[in-house]
Computed example of a mutant assay.
Amino acid sequence: MNQGPDSSSTGSQPSPYERLGIETGASFEAVQAAKQARLEEVGENPQARAQLEAAYDAVLMDRLKERQQGKVSTAALNASAREAKAPAAAAAARPSLPSLPKLPALPKASLPSSSFSLPSLELAEGQQRWLPLGGFAALTLLLLFTPASSAELVLALATLFSVVLLQRRNRRFLQAVGFSVLLLSLGLGLGALLLQVLDPSLPLGLPLDAHQVQSLPALLLLLLGALLIA
């Protein structure tokens, strides 16, 4: 059995490690277990128990000196190696779970853009040309040959008709409403200017009320918008 660090200085006396019956590289748990075993062996002999306690204290002092000098005992190295191997062994013993199948990537939902963009001007063809011409011609006749009080109703019908035509052409309802209201407002503004510079009467002796004169530019702009705004 290996002798402890103090064996050379004690002569024929057993070293603390020999007295406890352990090796110099024994772990702390082994030192405690050896001490308990030796105490049980000597029973109630006070001298033997005192020698075992002294040997135990000497071993602890040796371990404290080694730690202060930066030395690592064999037991500490073995314990570190066991701790390093423990996670790897646990991971190897753990059963591998089956991998979940990957979900297919969902296509990104494209939301329709609600931004208001400038229109492109292009003359309508076919039915998209003749339908506005016929409809606004009928509305103009209705404006000219009905009482002046019906001018607001004619403008409301013309604006609604313009919204329908623009929505059918560019498939954007909000833009169709916006352009129709804008053209109506511009037309009414031009009509107000006409009332200041023109005599509110047309050739062929057809007298027109001020509301009818102001409504004519609005009908014209709504027609042009339905024919040109793409």
Rank of each mutant, 00 (worst) to 15 (best):
Q3N: 08
Q3S: 09
G4C: 15
S7Y: 05
S9V: 15
T10A: 10
T10I: 11
G11N: 10
Q13E: 06
E18D: 11
L20V: 11
I22Y: 03
T24I: 10
S27T: 15
S27C: 02
S27M: 06
F28I: 14
F28A: 15
E29N: 15
A33G: 11
A33K: 11
A37I: 05
A37M: 09
L39Y: 00
E41F: 07
E41K: 11
E41C: 03
V42N: 06
E44Y: 08
A48W: 01
R49P: 03
R49V: 09
Q51M: 06
L52N: 01
Y56R: 03
Y56Q: 06
D57Q: 13
A58H: 02
L60Y: 03
D62E: 06
D62Y: 10
R63E: 14
L64F: 05
R67I: 09
G70P: 03
G70H: 05
V72S: 04
A75K: 03
A75Q: 02
N78K: 10
A79R: 12
S80I: 13
E83Q: 11
A84W: 05
P87F: 07
P87I: 05
A88R: 06
A89T: 15
A89V: 15
P95C: 02
S96Y: 09
L97Q: 15
S99A: 15
P101I: 04
P107I: 08
L111S: 04
P112V: 08
P112G: 11
S114K: 07
S115A: 09
F116M: 11
S117V: 07
L118Q: 05
E125T: 11
Q127E: 12
Q127L: 13
R129K: 10
R129L: 13
R129F: 04
L131Q: 11
L131D: 10
L131I: 12
P132I: 02
L133V: 15
L133D: 07
G135K: 09
A138K: 11
L141K: 14
L141P: 05
L144P: 06
L144D: 03
F145D: 13
T146H: 10
A148G: 15
S149R: 13
S150K: 12
L153T: 15
L157C: 12
A158D: 02
A158L: 02
T159C: 13
L160C: 08
L160A: 13
F161Y: 14
V163E: 03
V164K: 12
G178W: 11
G178I: 09
F179I: 01
F179Q: 01
L186W: 12
L186E: 10
L188H: 00
G189M: 02
L190A: 12
L190Q: 09
Q196D: 04
P200M: 02
L202P: 01
L202A: 12
L202Q: 09
G205T: 01
P207N: 05
L208M: 09
A210H: 04
H211M: 05
Q212G: 01
S215C: 00
A218C: 00
A218V: 00
L221G: 00
L222M: 01
L223G: 00
L224N: 07
L227A: 00
L228W: 06
A230T: 10
